[in-house]
């Protein structure tokens, strides 16, 4: 099978799992843990599929865009695996047999904050790569995509603030709020819109850096 198709399928699966992981009140604890394990496997697979990038690390010229990609990758990997590690330590279902190697108070606080950092960094990660993924599309299509993304991102910004997203990132809110009255579909859609904000931020940054890169060369 075409490796391009496999890569896109893995990417789509990761995005879907991400929305579900960020909807704990929809999935419940047990499924949340299995989804976390699935995500860990997908992240590892994603890195194997894109190993050429890993091999190129430190070689060639580092444009601002490439620096942004690299910094984002490193932070994302650190945040994600730290989140996973804390999650495993708190497990009471899927991998309960290896849990408990971190104090649960520390694991809980770190898992909550770092999962939100990971969410934001994943959005930016998608955004930074979006110009490459849509490189073959026509100019009109690109502009339309960007406009739609912008509208979603604007809605996402409202939701990020309404849901106190940044309070979790910066440990202002130490426990997650699960609104069990909220419809499951609404929870997932809100997650999509919130991710759109970070995707847009990443894309905007990528486009600006690419433009200024072209000018300077």
């Amino acid at each position: 099978m075409n490796s391009f198709i496999i890569k896109r399928c893995v990417d789509a699966a990761m995005t879907l799992v991400l929305f579900l992981l960020m909807a704990y009140q929809v999935t419940g604890g047990a499924l949340h843990e299995w989804l976390g394990i699935a995500m860990t496997a997908l992240v590892i697979f994603h890195n194997i599929l894109n190993r050429s990038r890993l091999r190129a690390f430190g070689k060639g010229r580092y444009t601002p865009y490439r620096i942004a990609l690299t910094v984002n990758d490193i932070l994302l990997l650190l945040c994600f695996f730290a989140t996973a590690l804390c999650g495993i330590s708190m497990s009471s279902h899927a991998v309960a047999f290896i849990s408990g190697f971190l104090p649960s108070s520390v694991a809980r606080a770190a898992h909550l904050a770092l999962s939100h950092w990971s969410f934001a960094l994943m959005g930016i990660h998608i955004g930074l790569h979006l110009p490459q993924m849509t490189a073959k599309a026509g100019k009109k299509v690109k502009t339309a995509l960007l406009a739609v993304l912008f509208i979603f991102a604007a809605a996402g910004m409202f939701l990020l603030i309404k849901n106190g997203f940044f309070g979790y990132m910066f440990l202002q809110t130490r426990f997650a709020f699960f609104d069990y009255e909220k419809n499951s579909a609404v929870v997932i859609i809100e997650n999509m819109l919130m991710l759109a904000f970070f995707v847009f931020a990443g894309t905007a940054a990528a486009l600006i850096m690419k433009k200024s890169n072209k000018k300077s060369t």
Binding site: F150, A154, M157, I161, K162, A204
Partner: peptide, 16 residues
Amino acid sequence: LIIAFVMIISLAGCGA
């Protein structure tokens, strides 16, 4: 787009 965005962010901030 970015300017519009910043405006929306600052608007949304009022409701927090």
